[in-house]
Design a protein around this nucleic acid. Sequence first.
DNA 1: GGTCACTCTATGTCTAAACTTAATTTATCT
DNA 2: AGATAAATTAAGTTTAGACATAGAGTGACC
Lengths: 233, 233
Amino acid sequence: MTERTASKAQAITSEVRRRIVDREWRQGDRIPDEAELAVEFGVARATVNKALQLLAEEGLLDRKRRAGTHVKVNPARKATLTIPIVREQIEQAGMEYSHRVVAQRRSPLPAEVAARMSLPEGCALIHLRSVHYGDDKPFQAEDRWINPAAAPGAEAVDFQRITANEWLVRNFPWLRADMAFSAENASARDARLLETRQGAALLILQRTTFNDLGAITSVRVAFHPGYAMIATP
Amino acid sequence: MTERTASKAQAITSEVRRRIVDREWRQGDRIPDEAELAVEFGVARATVNKALQLLAEEGLLDRKRRAGTHVKVNPARKATLTIPIVREQIEQAGMEYSHRVVAQRRSPLPAEVAARMSLPEGCALIHLRSVHYGDDKPFQAEDRWINPAAAPGAEAVDFQRITANEWLVRNFPWLRADMAFSAENASARDARLLETRQGAALLILQRTTFNDLGAITSVRVAFHPGYAMIATP
DNA sequence: GGTCACTCTATGTCTAAACTTAATTTATCT
DNA sequence: AGATAAATTAAGTTTAGACATAGAGTGACC
């Protein structure tokens, strides 16, 4: 517990984590209860509680009333992905951002997208295809459907001036989102937009967001070949 | 605030989230301070604090001492990925799990992996290649390097009986992990192991874990074509 | 042996109060 | 005006105490 700037709760978190990593407390072991640890560390029980809840969220501990706190046997730990705004991501990498809207029109919703958005097939949404560039090299190609019923005002926006992502994120916070990563071989269109060869392996991010009015938008983002999405634990 | 089983803090979290989503509190707005909200909701300030900290972690609020709490302008929200144990994932999908160790031997570490593990190039680690099957269809192929210096006992384990992932996860909790998703065209070996065609787009998960003794393991997991990794917000 | 009700305990949650700290605002001085 | 110091504010953290609640353990009863 030799943290410097950390709070007491954080110091306890680190110390307990250390005991687990150093196997002083083995997988499956029951650890001392909050009251005992509070005495050991010389803090209030609420502080120990905060520390242990953190580790439970992290996936290292199992906590149950009356049964006590146990070190997880199979710590299925989590990784968090921060999905940044493309422009910020590119600018942060020291490149110059630009983007191009390839197509913007009202179109009937294809079945596959309709299912993801829980909307009837064929209903007319805004369909937007655009490419984002860093230093004029294609960075990602997005294929997006926007539901004006959940995002009123979307019809009137000029998505050449502000990207759809930015406009939506700034104006329509979502309540729920579905998200999935996969890989696809570049189609002829993907290859053309990303200036790569057809068949190249592309990382695909598929995301649909909802507010209380229904699906806001569903987007398929294709990253340029070789791109890696970093996750932090 | 009409939650049923929720705690007061959670009820406040939901209510504040609703006000943001419904744009009663717009992006950039300063919201009432903790003391005011405590009065409005009839709870202690600590309870409001807990609720707002949750929303700040969620990425919806910006909180600064003295400056107050503001609705984030660009809510760059996070998604969490739970990396499950393959066997559990396959069994949960109702399939029968099996796996095959393709190769297990001590080999000198290639430069690329050495860099990821912060170990000297050419130092001899355990190199393991295996394939995991669901109902005898290849599900993922892994290429793993294990550092016995950080995971003592690894040399003696029979990875045919227990998968490396399970053994490591059960015995060596990590402190830090690097993780990245990308897409690659299947190499001849990938194609053979995953029973697909060469060049098929594969989702690749690259992960390296560390404890206080250094890098434990570095693994490249190639998923079968078409696999999608789901993230929850 | 199995079922039921009861007890007990460790965690979950909340409160009121106090103190700490970062950051802004205001006042003061040059 | 500009720089510097002091006051103020809102969040951050901790505490002691209280009560709620899930769920494991116990024992009575059939």
